[in-house]
Amino acid sequence: MVKESRILKSRPADDSGSPPSDAARSVVSVLLVIHLLIVFVALSSYVSPSSLQSRLLSLFSLYAEPLNLNLSSGGRSDARFYLTRTTTQDFPVELEIEVQGETADAKVVLPNPDRSWGPRARREQALLSMYARFAQSEETAAILSTSIGAAVMAQHEVQRATIVCRRPKLRENTQQSGFMPAPLHDEQFEIMQHGKLMIILGEVNYNPIVLPGRESQAVPAGKSNAETTESEPPAGSRSSSNGT
């Protein structure tokens, strides 16, 4: 205690202005230590948090989350400070939404090819990257796909859509062992595990809707329902884009 008070009460060596009171410095010092501790926990949890770090993050979440101190926002942000991990996750994901209407069909491709860089392009990439991350699990695959699909369907005023999420393949490295990324224009794609979904908006009176390969299901009015279908290799290469 004596040592601590000594630390906080010693005066700055070259204080040119009016020095703050010892009490003010002590309070600010304590706040700084607490804040820096939370920053340290939040930043050190970026790569792969241990159970202790996860608990501490949860403890500090009321402070760290609102201030966005957690670099990856708890895994909900596409913040790649490592830039590359040399896996398929590095690749930009492409989302192809095919809407089937009464009069005509349409195809929407995300990301919009007209946007090559800048904040708008990065937002699209982040969203699609999150889509791909959630598409790895059957439990979470439908969360983003239903909302994105529903938005595109509402835009085209249709009731049915198919979403295909895919990204370029790795190609075998001919010079060394292992795999290397193929150039993006090689047009060799793979569909993600839970990356192909059919979304059907409910009819007015809870009409049962038969989905391909599945039994009849009741869909509430105004809600969307997403079901995974078996992944199939895409026929052909990249399709033409309408953009959004």
Partner: peptide, 27 residues
């Protein structure tokens, strides 16, 4: 954090990372 997260991957040790970035960066 940036450098530690990079060093967790082999490509940043063996010098291949920039090659991957040239091929996987859509922007």
């Amino acid at each position: 954090v940036m450098v530690l997260s990079k060093l967790a991957n082999e490509a940043w040790w063996d010098g291949e990372a920039v090659y991957w970035l040239t091929h996987t960066s859509p922007s």
